[in-house]
Design a protein around this nucleic acid. Structure first.
Lengths: 214, 214
DNA sequence: TAGATTGTTAATCGATTAACAATC
DNA sequence: TAGATTGTTAATCGATTAACAATC
């Protein structure tokens, strides 16, 4: 595994590969060529070979890639199986939806705790995850290894919480708030901005007839 | 407004600009330079000027950009105010969370209806949005202008529903399912893949010490 | 063996950055 | 006017695609 200085675009494609490979596995497909993968993902075969070859030689001439093997390589590149842990901030609708529905385990994460300010939920459990008062957060981090903080709090409370998270030494934030987080040297942010996504769609809505020609 | 053949990367930055401009407006900031915007968004001033100049001349030498004016230009580029409509498929946790919390109106969308197979929710309302049986979908689309279908159904039911949506003539799908949708010529897909995002974060988790140097 | 398909090098294409005249 | 900052052209950088020898 070579793996130094991989371009961000390549990294963002890896989870898509994993998704498709898992799907092929489910359908008992044994091998797949770069061309077939390209057809599924709307990428060129060339690009797919380039991407994988950055991490090693996983294929075989004349045969393609063994699905199970490639799947495991990709999973390992993405760190699935590294036994990661997360805590969640904000048990509103979205926080609850994540805890109840999102398969953290499938992606190698255990959610250890949730934190909220609402005293009516503190002390309860959501999908087996205990909810603590946000004041107990610092101590919790001292006593548990926490890799990721999941942020599902209201937008206006984001900034101070991010400060606390960073100070507590958590290295990564999975951000669902509608806030442009300022880069911090010791913290990696990965944001899901629903509005950005919907507005991108909105942009294409006006111009669809132009674009559909292409 | 020139606006032909804008690169995808530029389009994806527009919602971010809008977000920051709205924020500056909230703080009563009158003008902003490309450099200041660049600092906030971690982009170069040059890039920001390039991006805006694709759509017109919104700035003024020596002064920068008027925040309110630029905000309106960006909003209009993104089609906010075009009175869009959406329907939602699947009223599980995530669907509910969206209906209850996501401010569709702010981004120029009205949610006309939700559809589900679960007879216990059909006939009820969620956040003021009526829930119909999925069988009534076709007729609904015939009688109402629907721009976007929001997909928050379980993964395994996605494919047939997308087929129906496309056949009904809906031009855009906002996809929250964990499925790689196959490109369709007459339908635009915009997907939010939670897992892709978390796995990207996971990738950086292993290598953080390398990357934080940069 | 013949056909298929990889991994990689080179060529192309596109996007970002730098530079600067224009001008508020 | 002097300083600041735009919009745009040119230069650079990076990412995608094409091509092909190697080989299963």
């Amino acid at each position: 595994v070579k793996d130094t200085n991989i371009p961000p675009n390549v990294i963002r494609r890896m989870p898509r590969y994993l998704r498709v490979l898992d799907d092929l596995l489910d359908h008992n497909v044994e091998s797949v060529s770069s061309r077939q993968l390209g057809d599924i993902l709307d990428l060129t075969a060339s690009q797919i070979r380039q991407d994988f070859s950055r991490f090693g030689e996983f294929g075989q001439q004349g045969y393609g890639y063994n699905v199970a093997l490639l799947r495991d390589e990709v999973a390992s590149i993405l760190g699935i199986g590294a036994n990661r842990t997360a805590v969640l901030f904000g048990t509103g609708n979205l926080g609850r939806a994540l805890l109840n529905n999102f398969n953290f385990k499938k992606y190698g994460f255990r959610v250890l705790a949730a934190f909220d300010v609402d005293t009516t939920v503190v002390g309860s459990e959501i999908a087996g995850v205990p909810v603590y008062d946000i004041g107990e957060f610092k101590e919790f981090v001292r006593e548990n290894k926490v890799d990721v903080a999941v942020l599902t709090v209201p937008g206006n409370t984001t900034a101070p919480i991010v400060g606390e998270i960073s100070k507590a030494g958590i290295k990564s934030v999975w951000n669902f708030t509608n806030v442009e987080l300022q880069r911090l040297s010791n913290t990696y942010f990965e944001s899901i901005h629903f509005s950005d996504s919907l507005l991108t769609l909105g942009y294409h809505l006006v111009r669809q007839y132009e674009y559909s020609k292409e």
